[in-house]
Design a binder for these strands. Structure first.
Lengths: 230, 230
DNA sequence: CGCCAGTTTGACCAAGATCAACGCAAGTGG
DNA sequence: CCACTTGCGTTGATCTTGGTCAAACTGGCG
């Protein structure tokens, strides 16, 4: 069971190490939280929850794999609000009806936490309340920084910032395995799949990245950062 | 002092009326919160805090007026992440350094709450923790619904959704006073000021709105909603 | 009255969308 | 084993939307 606990070092509680966590009673809170969670698996393109579905009865945490949070317009235009990787939380919504769907990008394992029980827990454990708040704030920061990308950046800048974001997420590795297809990238960046391809090809031609269908290698991070603006 | 309290009816605590709030101890929490807050005023275009500034030492709540949350790129491109109207909270950030500026759009009065004291309060009062979380979730929902607007919608759809959003925010009034200039609207919607003007003119020509420099009247809401998609 | 900032309109241009064709690898079935 | 299909990725030709640049208009204010 404890293997499902988010590692204390990942919790961003001001430089917390295991002893700190234990001393401040946060470990109790986290154990209580894990007790109300259940583990489940989804395979590629399976829906975890669906836009329009009543109530956010649950929220989730990614254990392994990648989840995309999508939004569909009636005429079929799609947008991806967020990619969630391991240890990211998702599915906490304030509205009565889900305004997004969550889908597995590849094979995915998640923990599911019932909302009502979590609320009750948050009343008793400030650490749980804080965890929820930090989760929401983290998503908020991510969403807001993407607003300027979608609103004001060129196709090249969008793709570059996407690559740098991914690289940073995976410990600044030069080699990035792309779990998602070109179509997902386009829908994430507000571009068509063709434009994403063209930008990749262009960056390859300029020698700053190496491109394979499901992986990218950053050859010249300095040049990339210069192209990424901001 | 109590006049600065957000009205209980606006707090979205599951149908809370004053007696409910008092019974559950939430009133105590809110009074404690107000005690650590200070009121301040800003005039048009004055900065409340600045992008790059160290630490989010404080968060804020709008008492009256409009605040814009902006993001500036080195080359001068600007984006507005959010407009905050009365009773909206802003300035809660998870990062060490502010990634946005907050500026008064007209004359503005806000309450300022020190972050550290609020955290301490949240440890003791679950209601405060919940208020903070709801605030973050509300901003998150707003930011995420704007992602699809910026990523996938046409100029007309963006402007229409902006008008409908404003109208909804002001009790579905047909007549909307625009506190912000065309430039702010453009930066909010990821469009140029000229495009915003052209769309306004086009909607006027089609007879669905009436346009004055600082106010808009919705003449045909049905037509507008049809143009807004989603 | 003239100035000035904000707004509106028009002419032209370019970034990226659309449409279409092709490449390529992994199935699938005879 | 080989034709055939299918899904994804890439590339090219053309078109459209919205950006850019420039000029005119408007209203408030000294």
């Amino acid at each position: 069971m404890y293997t499902q606990l988010p590692g204390a070092s990942q919790l961003q509680y001001g430089g917390s190490s295991i002893p700190d966590v234990a001393r401040s009673g946060q470990l109790d809170a986290l154990i209580a939280l894990e007790r109300i969670g259940t583990r489940s698996r989804f395979s590629c393109n399976q829906q975890i929850y669906c836009q329009g579905e009543s109530g956010g009865e649950c929220w989730y945490r990614v254990i392994s794999g990648t989840v995309r949070i999508t939004n569909l317009l009636q005429d079929g235009r799609r947008h991806i609000a967020e990619f969630c990787f391991s240890d990211d939380g998702f599915g906490l919504e304030s509205t009565a009806e889900r305004s997004f769907s969550a889908e597995a990008v590849g094979d995915v394992t998640v923990m599911r936490y019932p909302r009502a029980a979590t609320e009750r827990l948050a009343e008793g454990y400030p650490a749980v309340a804080r965890l929820l708040r930090d989760m929401a704030l983290k998503s908020l920061t991510a969403a807001q920084s993407r607003l300027i990308i979608l609103g004001r950046m060129t196709a090249t800048e969008r793709v570059v910032s996407f690559l740098l974001e991914l690289s940073e997420r995976f410990d600044s590795e030069k080699h990035i395995e792309l779990p998602m297809c070109r179509c997902d990238i386009g829908d994430y960046l507000g571009l068509t799949i063709e434009t994403v391809c063209r930008v990749f090809s262009d960056l390859k031609r300029r020698g700053v990245i190496e491109v394979l269908p499901h992986s990218i290698t950053l050859l010249d991070r300095f040049a990339l950062e210069a192209m990424g603006e901001d």
